[in-house]
Design a protein around this nucleic acid. Sequence first.
RNA 1: UCCUGCGUAGCUCAAUCGGCAGAGCAACCGGCUGUUAACCGGUUGGUUCCUAGUUCGAGUCUAGGCGCAGGAGCCA
Length: 444
Amino acid sequence: MRKEKSVLSINIKINNADAYVGQDVTLTGWVQKRIDKGRLQFVHLRDGTGVMQCVVFKKNLPEDQFDAARHITLESAVSISGALRAEERAPGGFELDANAFAVISRAEDPYPLAPKRDGGEHGSDFLLNNRHLWLRDPRQTAILRTRATLVGAIRNWLDDQGFVLVDTPIITPAAAEGTTNLFATEYFEEPAYLAQTGQLYSEATIGAFGRVYCFGPTFRAEKSDTRRHAMEFWMVEPEMAFTELDENMEVIEQFVSHCVQTVLRERAADLAALERDTTRLQNVLPPFPRIHYDDAVKLLHANGYPDFPWGEDFGAPHEDAISAQFDKPVFVHHYPRGVKAFYMQPDPERPDTVLACDLIAPEGYGEIVGGSQRMHDYQTLLDAIDAHKLPQEAYEWYLDLRKYGAQPHSGFGMGLERVLMWLCGLPHIREALPFPRLYRRFYP
RNA sequence: UCCUGCGUAGCUCAAUCGGCAGAGCAACCGGCUGUUAACCGGUUGGUUCCUAGUUCGAGUCUAGGCGCAGGAGCCA
C-alpha cells in the first residue's frame, strides 16, 4: 500500500516546494544532517536547489525503512517520500512527513568533513585537499552560484552592447607580452605555451567585428604565493576599435557597475548567507573617480608613503592606501611607461606616460581591471618591440595589423576571481574557483 | 624567491622546568516524538611530519630536510 503511495508521488526539487504543499512528493538528494531523537529523526536533505527538513516518525513507515533512516550516514544518497507541508519550525519554511525512505547509496563513515561546531573548524590545507567534497558546503555553493551569475552578467552586458564573443587560442606559439613566465607544453615537436592573455588576438578580431571580447581561462606560471593569485584564472577581455582612453574608462565603469548591480539583485540570498555587508557595493554606479598617476603618487605621499618614488608600480599596500580614499572603485590612469606592457600607446603630451588605466576595487581588494589604448602606428610598435628585446618574427602578424586599416583602439582585462572575491567578501582566491590551481597545489 | 609562524587522534587544538599522550568535535553503541551547532550516558581512536644528535629520559632541546599558513615581491 505504501509502495503504491510512493509510486504515485511526484518527483520535485526543493526550491519548488511551495507549489506542492499538501501533496505527496518524492525528493532525491544527499543527507546533510541528521538529528536523532529516538523514534523521531530529523533528516536534512540537500538536492542542489535547497535543503528540506524531512520528519521521519517510526510509526509512519515500515520498520526496516525507519531503521535505515536512523542509521543513515552523512552525505548518503537517498530518496524520501511523504506529504509536504508548510512548517514554521523548519529551516526553509517547509517540511516533509516521510512515509518512505530508500537508500540509493550509503556513504562511508566517517564523512571526512565535520559539520561546523564550536569545537573547531577545518584548516585550509585540509579543506583544499578535500575540495571535491568541500564544494558541497553551503558557503561554497553560495560563492559558486554567485560566480555563475557574474559570468552571465558579464556576457549579457557585452552581448547587449554589441560586443561579439570571439574565442582566442589557449595554445600559443610564443610569449604574448614576453615578461611573464608561461606554462610550457609541446605542440607535436614544437614548443608551445598556454595563453596568459587573448588580447593580442582580439586586436586582430576587432578588424572583423569592431567590438569583441574573449572570455576564458588564462595561465601564469609565476611563483606567486598570495591570497590573490591563482595559476589558472578566468579573464574577460573586451577590445574596441576607434576607441581612446577616456571612452575605455567609460565602458569599464558602466560594465563593472552592471556586473555588481546584477549580482546584488540576483544573488541577494547567497550574499546574505556569506554575511557580506553590501552597503558599499550598492554605491557602485557610474561615474567612478579618476586620478592621474602623478596625483596618485601625491596622494601616497600624503597618506603614509612619503618616499614613494615617481615611476614605480604600486604594490598591494599602495593600492589599499589609494582605494581607502574613495567609496567606489577608482581609476588610476597615465602610468609611467616603464611599468606597463610594450604595446601601450604613449601619451603624445607626456611621452613618459602611457594611455593606460587600472581600476582599483574598494575594501582592499586591489586591482580588478587593467586597460589601455594600444599602439596603432607601425613604426611606434616596431620600436617598442625592439626596445623590449622581443623577437620580431613572433609578432609579424601583430605588426601586420598596423598596415591594414590601423586606428586608435583600446581594451581591458577583468579578472573574474578578483571581482568575485570583492563581491562575496572572500579573504582568499582559493574559494573563488571550483578547483583552484595554486602555487604548489593542483590536486584534486 | 625572501621574512615570520606553525606541524600532536579523522578534524580543531592542549600538554607547566625535559619526567605516565589529553580535551572538544566527528565516528560507533544506547536513551529521548520537535530538533535547528540538539541533549544525556558509554566505546573506539596515536609512526607527536621525517632523519640524525644531546640526555638516565625528547611531543618539548640542537642540526638538516619536508609540508602548511600569513605577509612581501610579481601580477589580474
